[in-house]
């Protein structure tokens, strides 16, 4: 008959290592929890506070949609998102060309391009908004620039990756035909990255609709300003309406982007 064969998935050493990782993860969690300084009274109180908040929000103040210019603020939010995305795309294209190592064949310039992309992404859109409010004063212009500069990193990075992944064959063929560099970019690279470009543009616009509804909290225009005002004045029914509006617009944007992406790809 068959011999008894022993089989174990891990060696004792591996088991020990895995146990150490689990132990480390749990102790890290416990340690983090201890630094958060949860005040038990506030935690017990939370369900009541939540209920209280909802009762103050109800009924939703639909009348303020026109009376308090929330409609205008909503449109402004969409405008900030769209213009910001367009600005970002214009700025991202040269930076992407700079950081794609198959187009710019200089490691220093590649590094410089990547540095711009990383700087754009590491600064949060609220911080960008505070900076541009300081420069342009409060309003939609500051918001547009904040959204634009925040998006360069995302758009530029994805575009640079798409550029680096193109099929080199057609590029070689155009070079062999004596095409000037710009023509090679237009006829060799662009047709190959166009679907990725439009895809990322729509995706970023979708993200920017969400981001631009927040930056108003620091005065950079849009529905965030209305939200800030309503919060400061404790108009909870109006706050409820604004949150509902943001929710609706974000859902619509997402559905629209998904539909369009399906049709262009």
């Amino acid at each position: 008959m068959t011999n008894t064969m022993t089989w174990e998935r891990f060696t004792p050493g591996q088991r020990l290592a895995r146990f150490a990782v689990y132990l480390g993860a749990v102790s890290l969690f416990v340690f983090s929890l201890s630094t958060v300084e949860i005040i038990p009274e506030f935690l017990y109180d939370a369900p009541y506070q939540l209920q209280d908040l909802f009762t103050r929000m109800w009924p939703i103040d639909f009348a303020s949609y026109t009376q308090e210019n929330i409609h205008e603020a909503l449109i402004e939010t969409l405008n900030i998102a769209s213009l910001g995305t367009i600005l970002a795309l214009f700025l991202a294209v040269p930076v992407a060309l700079l950081s794609a190592n198959n187009i710019t064949r200089s490691p220093i310039l590649n590094w410089f391009g990547k540095f711009i992309l990383v700087s754009s992404r590491t600064v949060n859109s609220l911080v960008w908004a505070i900076l541009f409010v300081a420069i342009f004063g409060p309003g939609a212009l500051a918001g547009t620039f904040a959204i634009g500069f925040r998006s360069i990193g995302f758009c530029g990075k994805l575009l640079a990756e798409a550029l680096e992944e193109v099929d080199h064959g057609p590029i070689e063929a155009l070079r062999a035909a004596g095409a000037p560099t710009v023509s090679i970019l237009l006829k060799g690279y662009w047709p190959q990255v166009a679907p990725a470009f439009w895809g990322l543009a729509l995706f970023r616009w979708d993200i920017n609709v969400r981001e631009s509804s927040v930056i108003g909290l620091v005065g950079a225009g849009g529905i965030g300003v209305a939200l800030d005002t309503a919060l400061n004045l404790f108009r909870w029914q109006q706050v409820a309406l604004i949150l509902l509006c943001i929710f609706t617009i974000v859902i619509i944007a997402e559905v629209a982007v998904t539909k369009i992406r399906q049709n262009i790809i």
Binding site: D167, G169, P170, E172, A173, L174, A176, A177, K187, G188, P191, Q192, A194
Partner: peptide, 14 residues
């Protein structure tokens, strides 16, 4: 100098 390639090297989407 014209060149013809093994993998055709056309711009597929044009």
């Amino acid at each position: 100098i014209g060149m013809v390639f093994q993998e055709y090297n056309l711009v597929e989407r044009l």
